[in-house]
Amino acid sequence: MRFKTALLPVFLALAFISCGKDNSGAGTGRPASVGLDRNGIVCALAWSQMSDQAKARVSLLYPEGLSSVAATLEDYLAIDKYNAYVPGLRKMNMNGRYFYDPNPTQAHGGDCLRGLRFAHYYLSHLDRFTLPDEELYFYHALLVNMVLDIHNLSLPALAPSGSRWTDSEGNDLMDTVCSEAFGNFSLSGILLSIGNLSADEAAGITAKSFEEWAQENCSASAGLASAPERQVRTAVQKAGYRLAYLFNLYYGGTL
């Protein structure tokens, strides 16, 4: 009896780790990635870089996997108090020289940098707030979406025209190129190709400020026309490593 009791934490830990592995971050547990969207790839990469402690926490909160988090934001938009400002955050502007520019959006609800700072503030200060479940899940959903947005090369609109990168059918060019860049790879192949950074290289990506993330996205968006696949792969890679960094910060015992 005592033997079983002593082993219980070990069993639990193994269960969490096993649960995490089954999730593989992609949410559905599917082995290959044909048709895997940008959210799925970013979340799978993030999952591969998360600490066991952070994985355990995320698995408890999201049994369907990390990639299920982003979609939950839709549910919150039906609630007035969230719908009042969340749609306003899903944009970004740059000037003609591809410099991030908060001015055109400031009077219209801000942009994804504001949204990212907002979600990060609560999640990095969970000790100060007794958040009801509804809000905790909301901040996760907002965070994941803002990380995806701030690494979306199609998102920065050129002021004053407001034009964005789209393909010939008007679809978001980032997602189109992403499908082309990763469409023929298995999930493990994708992770091998973009999830193999050294510790120093990864630290170089995660050490930058949110503001620098925004600036990088605007600068890189200039290359979406000339070297789309390379730019998209880099942006997806950064998003994955940075999302992992944030979840490790909140739940990995490093905060």
Binding site: K81, G110, F129
Partner: peptide, 17 residues
């Protein structure tokens, strides 16, 4: 701020910050 004097940006987010 909340009742524990923690800065709480959520209350003013919908007003523009």
């Amino acid at each position: 701020m909340n009742h524990d004097y923690a800065y709480d940006p959520g209350w003013r987010m919908w007003r523009g910050g």
